[in-house]
Design a protein around this nucleic acid. Structure first.
Lengths: 350, 350
DNA sequence: CTGAAAGCGCTTACAG
DNA sequence: CTGAAAGCGCTTACAG
């Protein structure tokens, strides 16, 4: 293939350097450098000469050389479980927005919900000399050792959504407890009594928080908390399917489901459809994170909306502040953003 | 905020360098470098000493220094219209997969469908010394001058989906003509006669190809091609909404819509719902790109599926080959992947 | 087999 | 006001 691919090769088109400018002008590289940076010690004539030629030759400073000198790469790393996921990509949109406007580049990695891959990504990122990391951990991530090690190396970290509790790094989260509480209350008010909760891994703090909201609501309404109605799902369709089928074999069946992530919600939805269950007549459903398409699905899905773009922006702003002021452990630990509930037909008892 | 944010600052934790190892071992940096790279001219004893210490100190080579030396950054840039879009994020997933396994990093930019921002991104990327670019152009991009300039600078470019015809760079596309043809035929076979086509900007080649498939199908079935049923939409909800309302004011109304992108399809869907039109009874609808959630919307949407992960992988593989063999203009110009049609209720006349 | 030197592109303290 | 030198971390042709 390679041979056939070959037609004609790249010309030797090296970008213009300071040296090139210096040579053409018969002055030293130091002077060119200073002129370009607008140093006050340069004679106006010289400055103009340099700047004009630089513009003419379309000189742009080599950021790699700068990085080597400054020991800053102007790159921030982002690790998300899965980019092809509206929640993640929307957060990245927010990160990119701030980064772009602050002169940073965003390098993206996916953990694919695997702890191992997350660790590999982190060491890769570290060896790549990124200036900072924004991460939402995988469903398998039980501890934050890999994150703490990164921080110990002097690389600031900001966590969002799925955070590691014991890691001393700031976090951008949403009021998950309140969100889950609100959704569960809503289900109860609609007359549902046997509300199942399909959660993520038990050690994740999002899981704990949403679980708390869920159980608080039940308690407050004197509904017993039943273990059999709490499922911790893997991020694998076959697994969710099996767990759900098992759940629905209970007699009586749950009459409502609260799903704890976009992926879980979508998978649940698929399984319920496959099983021929009508929503909400046979079983109601509400989910965490409001993918915009949820308005149009059949039935439209009640969802807890998290402000993704804000999450991304806040995380990026925080990280860049930390990078630029050499702060590894800021005093502000947590930025908590509001969730809102979008009530739709999937939870509306007729 | 900054002052309050400040708690304690980073320790001076510079990563271990070759010099550090050399100093500790009392040998020269050259020897360390050679030992680390497994040069044959190094005595086994020395090699082992160096390698062991490097491991102990967790030495990782500084990629920035390597980049400066090699004039390669091992970074590939990706520009997409909008990352929070299933099509784009899934393609990026494929790119990332190959890049990750080939030692490249992926830096992502969004054009937000603006030509101006696309150009800005490209000059940023160029000045950042990326090794190559993968791009799907914005809806506003009429010509590929900015891309050609990049290629002239020696940076290989691969285009996907929304390509620039006159740019001499390889492209990864899907058989859009056949896809649109098939979808239109399907609509005709279902008994629809007044089929509208909501397309992207007229100068984009995807638009032309899909338009050709659409008109070919109509011609073949002796259905006149009506200008009033061809709409070129902006990527702006208000605009699509207005255009659609105007379209639906025709008498008779179109009885089917073929939407030319995920975003357009979703927006159309929303407007049709808002107008209280029943799908497919009042108007049928089919769309380009099958967002997985389309199976669940009401009604499930007939969609032309494009193999996103493959697109990303192919583009990345091609680009990396070009980078590593110094090829700017490969002989193979086009990789065309197959689309498949998923027929669902939105186009099924009862 | 090993080291000193030069160089990748840039900045800046030090001289003058 | 300007230049030569050193250095960021690495590699490698050149000596020995």
């Amino acid at each position: 293939m390679i041979k056939e691919l070959y037609l004609y090769s790249m010309q030797n088109l090296q970008p213009v350097t300071i040296k090139d400018i210096a040579r053409k002008l018969g002055i030293s590289a130091s002077t060119v450098s200073r002129a370009l940076r607008g140093s006050t010690e340069i004679k106006e004539d010289t400055r103009k000469l340099v700047v004009d030629l630089a513009k003419e030759l379309k000189y742009t400073p080599n950021p790699i050389a700068l990085s080597l000198k400054e020991k800053k790469s102007k790159v921030i790393g982002v690790i998300v479980p899965e980019i092809a996921n509206y929640f993640c990509s929307a957060v990245i949109g927010g990160i990119e927005d701030i980064a772009y406007n602050s002169g940073y580049h965003v390098v993206i990695f996916q953990s694919h919900e695997k702890y191992e891959r997350e660790v590999a990504n982190i060491s890769l990122l570290a060896s790549r000399r990124i200036d900072g990391l924004i991460i939402s951990v995988s469903n398998e991530t039980k501890d934050g050792k890999h994150l703490s090690e990164l921080i110990d190396k002097g690389i600031p970290v900001v966590m969002f959504d799925r955070i590691c509790e014991e890691t001393d790094a700031p976090r951008v989260v949403t009021d998950d407890t309140r969100g889950a509480y609100g959704a569960t209350c809503h289900l109860i008010e609609q007359g549902y009594q046997r509300i199942a909760h399909i959660a993520m891994a038990p050690y994740l703090s999002v899981t704990k928080n949403r679980m708390k909201g869920y159980t608080d609501a039940l308690k407050q309404h004197n509904i017993p908390i039943e273990k059999k109605w709490i499922v911790h799902a893997d991020f694998d369709f076959a697994h969710i399917r099996k767990a759900l089928i098992k759940l629905l074999r209970n007699n009586p069946k749950p009459d409502a489901i609260l799903a704890s992530s976009e992926r879980i919600a979508t998978d649940c939805f698929e399984v319920l459809k496959e099983m021929g269950l009508r929503i909400p007549e046979d079983i109601a459903m509400a989910g965490f994170f409001d993918n915009p398409v949820y308005r149009f699905i059949d039935p439209p899905l009640t969802a807890i909306h998290q402000p993704t773009f804000d999450i991304g922006q806040s995380a990026a702003r925080l990280l860049i502040t930390m990078i630029e002021h050499n702060i590894l452990h800021p005093q502000y630990k947590t930025i908590e953003l509001k969730t809102t509930m979008e009530i739709r037909a999937s939870t509306m008892k007729k």
